[in-house]
Design a protein around this nucleic acid. Sequence first.
RNA 1: CGUGGGGUAGAGCAGUCCGGUAGCUCGUUUGGCUCAUAACCAAAAGGUCGUUGGUUCAAAUCCAACCCCCACAACCA
Length: 472
Amino acid sequence: MKKIYLTTAIPYVNGRPHVGHSLDYLLADVCARYHRLLGDEVRLQAGTDEHGGKIFQKAEDNGLDVQQYVDNNVEFFKSFIEQMGISYTDFVRTTDEEHVKRCQEIWMRLSDHIYSAEYEGWYCDGCERYITQKEYDENGGVCPDHQKPYSRLKEQNYYFRISDFKDRIRDAIESNEMKIFPEYRKREILRLIEESPDVSVSRPVSQLKWGVPVPGDSGQTMYVWIDALSNYLTVLGYPDVDVDDWWPAEVQFLGKDILRFHAIIWPAMLIGLGLPLPKNMVTHGFILSNGQKMSKSIGNVVDPLEVLEKHGRDAFRYYYLKHIDTFNDSDFTWEMFDDAYNNELANDLGNLVQRVATLAYKNGLQEVDTNELYKMSDEYVEFMDSFEYTKAFEYVWGLIQGLNRRIDVEKPWVIAKNGELDKLKDCLSSLVGELLVANYLLSPFLPDTADRIYQVFGKPIAPPEIPLFPKA
RNA sequence: CGUGGGGUAGAGCAGUCCGGUAGCUCGUUUGGCUCAUAACCAAAAGGUCGUUGGUUCAAAUCCAACCCCCACAACCA
């Protein structure tokens, strides 16, 4: 029995939950439930990133108090996470008093690697942000959104000296001390490390008010990096609490877009703090809509709550865990979602449960000895341990389809007609047993369904009154 | 010549490292069955494996060149 700490990336709460947010949670949740089956003690973190200019701006635009605005949005995320059935144990908000305090302490512990420098660049007053030289050239020196010429600005920033840690990080990634999944992302990061400059970790208060004050400098506010990334530690109580039991994290789940920060800035922070690096980083792809990235301007955004409502929580989890590739971009369409529900969940699994339960019930099989049943095959464990959840799920589905086939081959109804009672009992017990094994392996993916199946085949065995996955 | 991923049946994908009858799921057609949610099972049809050239007895797989899509390079999950 091990202690396992898993993390999810904390979403920026300047809007409502997006379907893309769900992948982090689902993957982490499957991992958590799997480890609990193995008998491990698991802590699963979730949280929200609530500082920054964009949120401040958005709140003002809506005429709301900023804290009130984020409080509101956080509720949407929390309820979304709960609706997906995520078994998190800890929740952190970057506006939590404790987080702010601990995060400042972390900053101070990193101070040997933080220096002050002047930043100079092109700035748009309308966008309230610096732009790159390339963007400046492309737009001919005028902001296309605001029709105003960019101005040359200088400001004081604190920088975090990434160069102090590069060698150590490269070694850790190359040697798989901090293992990055999938493999090709590891190569990508190794290349990126070489050209990573020191990062700016603060902004003048005049530019960024809504954030954690830099300790010892009232004129500066922390920029997102140290504030947000440190959540993985502050939620455990670091540095006030001894976190050796839980840190390093077993797995950190994140989207491919933020891997660079998690694989470079974050390890640099950890090394600076004298802490070990996370053991695994799992990066998932994006969910596309008809092959395109979802975006408000294209108008192809899929509302996750709508998907959740359509066929319920487990259908949602089923689609995202089986049909959305764990590592690569995959498509979501309502058509594919409905097909998956009707053809796979309802026809394969729901109907299988129905027919096996009915066979057992009609033939007087009351219960099945469940001892010795709950074991994991090597194949399953291998997939689960390498975070190939889509493949693990497919493996389990193969068992389910195999059972449907077996029933047709063995024809228990014929055995019953012939009055071969012992043979019938063996056949049915074995079918129920195998179904329960498949259900056991299924439980990290579809926890609610798994519970219902356990109920159906509890004492006494009885077909469900309402089918598991009713069709419209 | 930026970096990375990809182009295999109508759709979604595996197979490519270690060359040897092209596979899975869905859809389509036909047949079977009746325990079951018109569900389940079986069979069939359907592919110049992006293009061209090379190596080889043999190439989806190795090599070379090229074409096309996507992502990242800029806090869009």
